Amino acid sequence: MTEKIGVLVGWEHSFPKAFIERCNKVPGIHAELAKLGGTPERFESPYRVLIDRISHEVKHYRFYLKAAVLGGAFVINDPFWWSADDKFFGYSLASQLGVAIPRTVMLPQQDYIPAISKDRSLRNLEYPLNWEAIVDYVGFPAILKPADGGGWKDVTVVRTPAELLAAYNASGLNVMTLQEFIDFDDYIRCICVGQDRILPIQYNPKEIGPTGLRGRYVGREEDRWLPQDLHDRVLNDAITINKALRYDMNSVEFAVKDGVPYAIDFTNPAPDMHIEHLGERYFNIAIDWMVEFAAAAAKEGRRTRDNYAWAKLLNNDLEKVRLGAAT
């Protein structure tokens, strides 16, 4: 029996091409670009596994993937969780898990949609903000960035109260976070597959990469340029984060200062896997890991829906639901 794996992608070329070609060399597996059209309210997913690298930009795909979960597919990454998470929640969760996090404060939006009456709809909002306490906690320099953003969009380094207020006043409808700036000695981006396969790569977020985007992989030949204890901590922290978020495809970034790896950016469920960025060696490792993980998930019949109580209801297993609620 052949199990089907579908890939949802945007403009990227190298990842889907290599992934599909290598998947189709695995006995019992057929991989292809997923084709989505009109979807009835009750259907069985034609794909055993779906790999999602674009639904954050195409709303129809996100809705389809939720239905595909209902229809029995294993979706990488879980579209229900991806719809609910944000970077500030990630910081809060990681800090409680014992992962080192820069001091971070979430700020209210600076502006609101026209339907919001600021003197009636915002009665729960502290006003004015206690900027002195916020700055005392975070310190300068600091990074002002969206709580749900990515790709360095709307990110500003602020060094004074005047710079902070100017950047905040220009932030519009974004919910922003103010975060302690870590003047790092080393920086690591980990490509993560299946929660516990971690590929740490030396990275420089300050440089411009080969395609003109911010950030460049340094690409040392040796995998363990870090001291052993720091290497082990980075891997353990990345695994902890992935397991907590249930991300099977992620990138986790650490800024290292005085021997401490601070988790800076780790809610990236469609991580960079372009050969032009990673380089051939790291790209091939990431693709091979993805093929192995997706093929195993397909053959083992994994289902994302099994993480949710409503799946037990669908399976007429009401007793498990009752027992789960009791515990």
Rank of each mutant, 00 (worst) to 15 (best):
L97C: 02
I116N: 01
V105G: 04
P146M: 10
A84K: 14
K145S: 06
S117G: 00
V105N: 12
T104D: 13
S95Q: 13
P108E: 14
E132A: 06
M106R: 12
G172S: 12
A94N: 02
Y137P: 00
Q109V: 06
W152I: 02
D86F: 12
M106S: 09
I113C: 01
K118R: 03
P128S: 12
D148F: 11
G150M: 09
G151D: 01
F80Q: 05
D119K: 13
K118D: 01
A100S: 13
Q96C: 02
A147H: 11
P102A: 15
Y168C: 08
N130L: 07
S83F: 13
A167R: 10
L129C: 03
F80P: 06
A142Y: 08
P146E: 12
M106Y: 01
T156S: 12
I113E: 09
M106G: 06
L144I: 03
P102Q: 13
G98A: 07
T160Q: 13
G172C: 12
I143R: 00
Q109R: 15
Y112D: 04
I116M: 00
F89Y: 14
I134W: 04
P102V: 14
K145T: 09
K153H: 08
G139S: 07
G98F: 07
R120G: 01
D119L: 10
L144M: 03
A142F: 08
S121L: 10
A115F: 05
V157H: 10
K87W: 04
T156I: 04
Y112L: 05
K118G: 00
K118I: 10
P146L: 10
W152Y: 09
W82H: 13
A133H: 02
L129K: 02
P141I: 11
R120K: 05
K145R: 11
D136E: 08
F88Y: 15
F140L: 11
P114M: 02
A142M: 10
A133F: 05
A147V: 08
L164P: 02
A166C: 02
D111W: 08
I101S: 08
E126H: 09
Y137G: 01
R123L: 09
P114R: 01
D136C: 00
L93V: 06
D85H: 02
E163A: 08
T104G: 10
M106P: 01
E163K: 10
P161N: 07
A170H: 12
S121T: 13
G172N: 14
L97H: 07
F89A: 14
A170P: 00
L165A: 09
N169R: 15
D86I: 10
A133D: 11
P102S: 13
Y168E: 14
L165P: 02
L97Q: 12
V105M: 08
T160G: 07
W82S: 15
P128Q: 11
I113G: 03
A166L: 11
A84I: 04
